[in-house]
Nucleic acid binder design. Sequence first.
DNA 1: CTGAAAGCGCTAACAG
DNA 2: CTGTTAGCGCTTTCAG
Lengths: 337, 337
Amino acid sequence: MSDVTIKDIARMAGVSHTTVSRALNDSPLINPETKERIKSIAGSLNYTPNYNAKSLVLDRSYNLGLFFTTLHQGTSSGFLYAALRGVNEVIKDGYNLIVRGIDDYTSFHHVNRKSFDGIIVMSQSAADQPFIEYAAQRAIPLIVLNRQIEMDGVWNLVPDDQSGAYRMTEYLLQCGHRRIAIIEGKPGFKSSHARKEGYLDALRSAGIEPEDELCMRGEYDFESGYQAMVRILELKDRPSAVFCSSDDMALGAVKAAAERGVRVPDDISVAGFDDTLYSAFITPALTTVRRPIEEMSRAGAEKLVAFIEKKHVEDHKRMFRTELVIRDSVKPISEGD
Amino acid sequence: MSDVTIKDIARMAGVSHTTVSRALNDSPLINPETKERIKSIAGSLNYTPNYNAKSLVLDRSYNLGLFFTTLHQGTSSGFLYAALRGVNEVIKDGYNLIVRGIDDYTSFHHVNRKSFDGIIVMSQSAADQPFIEYAAQRAIPLIVLNRQIEMDGVWNLVPDDQSGAYRMTEYLLQCGHRRIAIIEGKPGFKSSHARKEGYLDALRSAGIEPEDELCMRGEYDFESGYQAMVRILELKDRPSAVFCSSDDMALGAVKAAAERGVRVPDDISVAGFDDTLYSAFITPALTTVRRPIEEMSRAGAEKLVAFIEKKHVEDHKRMFRTELVIRDSVKPISEGD
DNA sequence: CTGAAAGCGCTAACAG
DNA sequence: CTGTTAGCGCTTTCAG
């Protein structure tokens, strides 16, 4: 049924299977008429090439990998979704997109040039480094998104988290906030570090010395945001604004505040980071920083596919601008410090 | 470098490549000592089998497909995430998971038994039917999740949306609500239909005739929930509760209410459906219906893999119980009708 | 423009 | 227990 081969077609067309192969691949060597004839027979037989055979001889797998640090924790569903969409928009037919968490691999044995024409790593942590190096060393076309890495010959597209955090903090300062707390991201994630740095820089630029007391640990998820906010609200000297390193944590923070009768933004301002799908829709709508995940993924996939198909090279590093999204969860304060 | 073949190993071990093949595949025919020797040589050479060659001869692709109706609209990121996690937990190594939106296919040519050892369809709409039939007809091991289908020989695991909606509506009635509006899901999605049916059934069981005026169209997303709620609030005779066919729409509804000074749940109750990740964390925490997407996906993947590997068959249909999750967005009303 | 022959890397009879 | 041989379906020299 679906096991028609080029030999079957060859027999029916009265030509050799070589000719069929060439015709189906649009070789210019073939007489247009026989080519048409062969194609129509193939069509009527509902022929589908055996990609395993093609792969073997052409040394291409038609597989692209999209790998995340983890699919268990720290990866928000919105992040996954945006990345998947961005990549899928580009690759259309012609490639299979294989999605996986790097921490699901027990060994990297299955990761090699024969099995992957190219790999996109959505990296969120330095824990990916061994995987990235493994792939690079196996000479698999490779592009690393989201996390900055220092490797030659590996493409790297990242959002400018630090300047995003800087601008957000700056904005909070402009709104008159002086004591600004931060709820940090998952320890070990480069993005957590970059966001905190941006926050610290902005504070210092404004001549404000950061206070350790106002730096809370978080895990990027709702629950940790909630917990951190509880601790913040218990502070004797409560800050007037809280910069959360993710929207998920900002949600948790808002929730914790609401449960304690503290109103956002009237009693305390809360800012997020990520601009997840729902941030615009919750109450209060979240003031946050947008990362261009989907655009970045699209650009990455385009680069990768172009390289695989045309061996076309270009600049290797690029930063994607983040964007301040001002909504309702941050409020200027009138009274001085 | 990564191009070591069994022939290279054979040469070094002083045996035939057949022996190497057998040894590496743990054939009982091989002398344990030579087997060990061969394996250690393979290890030191960092040998990786060429899966394209294996695929060709074994007629297995080592690919599993996870297909969604669409990756563009109507699929929430939480849904995608839960499904992906559930499946990935099961397949571990040994299979590549290929993720795709069915509506991204321009033709199904690439979908065949040579390219997929099995397929999981996360179906959300009857629009998938052609795809499902195509795959079934090509004799690809197939399992359809989430949407009920009528086809023999195709496994089908679905959440009981209708009874979930029924129980939610029943709960609203128990809370004293008489006029209950519904914001419906995306037209054409089977789940939209099932949820509405559950709602209607419960109403009728309570002797209440459903009112057309209280049935609002929606699209499963935030924005449509918002819009629908605006229309509900403009009604002369406003209902005391709103059953939203998705949490995303419930969020939109809450937002619309808040903006108009209508408090949830004090002035109006809002119920959702899905129990997305954030529904517990927003204010007010959403009363909703949980669908066991991740469990369902896990069960589906297990069935599929078992079938592929052991040709083991079992019952073909199964319904997964949905669960009422009572939180804060619905409030009993004391005053009578 | 077309065909014969070889081979991609691996597994599977079939003989020993 | 091991080797010889053939072949999976396709592309690619190399000759016409």
